[in-house]
Design a protein around this nucleic acid. Structure first.
Length: 172
DNA sequence: CCCTGATTCGC
DNA sequence: GCGAATCAGG
């Protein structure tokens, strides 16, 4: 593959948007991440602050304890959020703490896993290949979350993919 | 082991 | 100029 003006422009754009070299390589196609890095240097584009992995992953700071309404139901709600940091999805626990024990938990909190929204070319041996969206539109992507061993799907999508029907379950 | 960018150097 | 190999690191 050869660095056409078009491809160079795309490289500049994606690099400035903070995508990692491997991600850019996947989107350009036909080049390795090394090629991308090499080109970035040759173009004298600004490197990433510091070296190595996620540039000083800035931890989201927990918001100061919110003032509690006097009659607010005491409970703890924890959710795991995922955000892209380079090609890695950083999962962090964000806890919203209110007073005491969750005596009566309200199970309204169904968690759908956020996907890494990978392109086809970005899938690897251990990324979930569950497709999301309409393949005919550009919002189409693959889940991309970690899949165990050689499974094509992450734990969540395994259940969807392999969920036996009620009928089948009755069989023997 | 997964990943990141940086550098070197033969091509 | 290019990028694989290598290095250094999270």
């Amino acid at each position: 593959m050869n660095w056409t003006d078009e491809r160079v422009e795309k490289l500049k754009k994606l690099w400035s948007e903070g995508l990692s070299a491997s991600q850019i390589a996947a989107q350009l196609g036909g080049v390795s991440r090394n090629a991308v890095i090499g080109k970035v240097h040759r173009l004298a584009l600004p490197g990433r602050a510091k070296a190595g992995g996620t540039p000083t992953a800035t931890r989201a700071k927990r918001p100061a304890a919110a003032p509690r309404p006097a009659n607010f139901a005491p409970r703890v709600v924890t959710r795991t959020v995922a955000r892209p940091a380079g090609a890695t999805v950083v999962k962090e626990e964000v806890a919203f703490e209110y007073d005491d024990a969750p005596l009566a938990r309200i199970d309204t909190n169904v968690v759908l896993p956020m996907s890494r929204r990978l392109e086809l070319t970005e899938l690897t041996e251990r990324t979930c290949k569950w497709p999301n969206g309409d393949p005919l539109t550009d919002d189409f992507h693959f889940c991309g979350n970690e899949s165990p061993d050689n499974s094509p799907y992450c734990l969540y999508h395994q259940r969807l993919a392999y969920q036996p029907s009620a009928e089948r379950r009755r069989m023997r």
